[in-house]
Amino acid sequence: MSYAERVLEYYNNPRNAGTLDKSSQHVGTGLVHVSEYVDVVRFQVEVNPVTHVIRDARFKTFGCGSAIACSSIVTEWIKGKTIEEAFRLDHMEIVEALSLPPSKIHSAILTEDAVRAAINDYRVKNGMEPAEEEYEEPADYYDERD
């Protein structure tokens, strides 16, 4: 199996790997997994409480190289975005940016889930309603996977 150059780049030099203070009022944490020991992503955002702009983002990921690259690239993207904008992140943007093969799309979906879980954790912590997912999965989506 060969991997896209960009996956390797993010895998070899992961941006923003690390941990934010989970107990901080301004930090939202999302911990998601495919199954317990296949692709586990912990995504964290630190949000400006006044502007709701994401000041910092960190990840830690257990999974294949693609999963690590997905998490890492998204930390770069969402810094400077509002939590509303970041919530609308579509996993297909990650798939395209990293040229992921169909068999690795689940890694991008998991990252999307992790970002949303982190944002909702922040929202709930700060007395807001959790945001709802809007996107629809095509009915034949799963057939496209490996």
Binding site: V34, S35, F62, G63, C64, S103, R145
Partner: peptide, 29 residues
């Protein structure tokens, strides 16, 4: 433990050629 086999292989793909018992190629591999 706590690292995934395929990620390991990617890590030293240019240095060591081996096999993993992992098969991270689908939603429920």
């Amino acid at each position: 433990r706590y690292v995934e086999g395929e990620a390991l292989l990617m890590g030293f793909g240019k240095e060591v050629a081996l096999s993993s018992g992992s098969a991270c190629t689908s939603a429920s591999p």
